[in-house]
């Protein structure tokens, strides 16, 4: 090892991405739990905790810029940093979407949901599983895993379509449902967007490992 300091910085950067994705995953989980439980306090916590996500994300961006400017990374290192910059943006956006869900929960307050929440939590579970997988693919430089993970986005999309149809039907049946229905649609939509972001992360990981630019959704 010749450039020890530089390579340690790269490793630290990888670790920061891992902790960022951990935080984002928690935010999603908690936003959905608070939605299910009508727990406004917990939702407010999710909103507040987004600051942490933003801080780490900004720090990752600064670190990347610094490494680019000072170390002129090439080949594998260059791809790693480019991937980190992109993954960082996707994760940060995913965190924002979790916040959006929490805000809806706050707005809903104690209103009874028009239907039992089944598919929405399932969407959230799939998204969290995807984030987990993407994180593992990233840490282990496993492009095959990244391809596999991206496929789960189809499942998220299918669930979204199902939720959407269901809610449409409920709205048509009873216009009183519209308020809660549109809130739930918004939440499902946000979860669907999260799936897209994770697919993008998988694209970045494939590029990082193989140098190939692919479209996975």
């Amino acid at each position: 090892m010749v450039r020890d300091k530089y390579h340690n910085q790269l490793i630290q950067l990888q670790e920061k991405i891992s902790s960022l994705s951990e935080l984002v995953k928690n935010a999603i989980k908690e936003s959905i739990i608070s939605l299910q439980d009508h727990n406004v306090e917990q939702a407010v916590d999710v909103i507040k905790d987004d600051i942490k996500i933003d801080e780490i994300s900004t720090q990752i961006e600064i670190d990347c810029m610094r490494l680019l400017a000072l170390q002129q990374p090439l080949a594998r290192d260059l791809r790693l940093i480019v991937a980190i910059i992109k993954i960082n943006i996707d994760l940060e956006r995913t965190g924002d979407l979790a916040v959006a869900i929490a805000k809806v929960t706050v707005a809903i307050d104690n209103e009874i949901h028009i239907k039992p929440l089944v598919d929405i939590p399932r969407m959230a579970t799939v998204v969290c599983k995807m984030i987990d997988g993407a994180q593992r693919a990233f840490c282990e430089s496993d492009s095959d895993l990244a391809y596999d993970i991206a496929i789960f986005d189809n499942e998220v999309d299918a669930l979204y379509n199902q939720v959407w149809r269901e809610i449409m039907t409920l709205m048509i049946e009873n216009p009183h449902n519209i308020r809660n229905a549109s809130q739930l649609t918004l939440i499902a939509r946000n979860l669907e967007r999260m799936g897209d972001h994770v697919s993008n992360m998988c694209e970045s990981i494939v590029y990082m490992v193989t140098g190939k630019r692919v479209k996975l959704n």
Binding site: A75, D77, R79, G211
Partner: peptide, 20 residues
């Protein structure tokens, strides 16, 4: 290509300063 995604591991190791 060499500086973005070399085919050989030793090339990549050299370019990224992992030996040399």
């Amino acid at each position: 290509i060499i500086f973005e995604k070399p085919k050989q591991k030793s090339t990549e190791d050299y370019i990224t300063g992992r030996f040399g």
